[in-house]
Amino acid sequence: MRHLIFSAVFHACRKVIAVLALAAAALPAHADWNKLQQSGALRVAVYNEFAPFSDHGAGIDIDLAEALAKKLKLRLTLLPFPAGENLGDDLRNMVWKGHYLGYGPADVLLHVPVDSHLMAENDKVQIFAPYHVEAVRLVRSAQAIPAFDSIEALAGKRVGVEKVSIAAMVLLGEGNGRFRDNVRIFPSAAAALEELKAGRLDAVLANRSEIEAVFRGDPAFPLAQATFQRLPRNGWAVGMAVRKDDQDVARLLQAAVNELRDSGELQAIFARHGVRMVQP
């Protein structure tokens, strides 16, 4: 399950940590700035199979991780991982504790929703440095759907969505399931978009960045804003997360993001992948 969704979909994931000295000593050491300098590396966690942000070692978040490490004068160590059942799992496994199989934690996790409810539910991490605003959009075949004024235009049309995604949730639930019979479920948004390109779908509901990376402004596949009651109209900001105590690391990463944005390098990273960066 991919966690680029607003607070209604978040699940709390809290663990009680013993205060005994022995238990405290067993926890992983904080990735404070001195330790990072000594190690010489910045360990960045990124999601697997998450194009155009991180997929098979390439994507926007991969390029951003490289740029951040360069700003901090550290070498980059990537920790790609599959998304857990909920964001609390990801924050626990990749930020503040580490996976029970011995993987992680990283020094920073990218692509975390900057959301007050998520922050309140996960008090062992600091979520900060929003670097993009994501939103769900509809892309259609202009031949199959010549005009789109509202979601009523989707009646009787073949619409693709990614399984276990916010797009699937809102479309399948709209109007007590009135579009359900015509919705096609795919393992990824990329797979659905390829089917649209091949003419086997009429439209796809997906994240704007995913759509832009595939079609890159092709006028035969225009984008539109589809309004659903449970969908945030203005999208949601994504940033990064570190351990709550790693204030120096957070401050340096925030400064690095600011510099990348001010210099235009951050926008250029998105543009290389066909995506328009939306500033939070």
Rank of each mutant, 00 (worst) to 15 (best):
S165A: 13
M169S: 14
S165Y: 07
S165P: 09
V164Q: 14
G175D: 08
S165R: 10
N176C: 10
G175R: 11
V170W: 03
S150G: 04
F148N: 01
K163C: 00
K157M: 13
L171C: 06
G177R: 04
A147M: 04
S165M: 10
N176M: 12
V164D: 15
E174F: 10
A147Q: 14
G173C: 04
G160W: 09
A147Y: 05
K157L: 03
E174M: 07
S165E: 09
A147K: 10
V170Y: 06
S165N: 11
D149Y: 01
A147P: 00
N176T: 05
R158E: 13
A147W: 01
M169H: 13
I166H: 15
D149K: 03
A167R: 06
K163G: 03
V161R: 08
E162I: 06
A153W: 01
E152T: 03
K163Q: 12
M169P: 00
G160H: 11
M169A: 15
F148Q: 04
R158Q: 14
G173S: 14
V170S: 08
V170M: 08
K157W: 05
N176W: 11
A147F: 06
S165D: 09
A168L: 02
F148R: 01
S165K: 09
G160P: 07
G173K: 08
L154K: 05
I166L: 15
G156R: 08
A168M: 12
I151A: 06
R158I: 07
R158M: 12
S165C: 11
V170N: 07
K163L: 02
V159K: 07
D149V: 00
G173L: 07
A167E: 10
K157E: 03
V159E: 08
R158F: 08
V170G: 03
G173I: 03
K163S: 11
E174P: 00
A155N: 07
A167C: 12
S165V: 13
V164C: 03
I151F: 00
G177Q: 05
G177P: 07
R158H: 13
A155D: 10
R158L: 15
A167G: 15
G160Y: 08
L172Q: 10
G173W: 02
I166E: 15
S150W: 01
D149F: 02
L154A: 05
A155K: 13
N176A: 15
I166A: 14
I166G: 11
A168Q: 14
A153T: 04
F148G: 02
I166F: 14
E174H: 12
L172P: 00
I166Y: 14
A153Y: 00
S150E: 01
G160S: 11
N176H: 14
F148E: 01
K157C: 05
V161S: 05
G160R: 09
I151S: 04
E174L: 04
G173H: 02
I166T: 14
G177W: 06
G175Y: 09
L154I: 06
I151H: 04
K157F: 05
V161L: 10
V161W: 04
L171E: 06
K157T: 06
D149I: 00
I166S: 13
R158N: 13
V161M: 06
V159C: 14
V161C: 11
G175T: 09
D149Q: 05
V170R: 04
G156A: 07
V164L: 13
V170F: 05
G177K: 04
L171H: 05
V159Q: 06
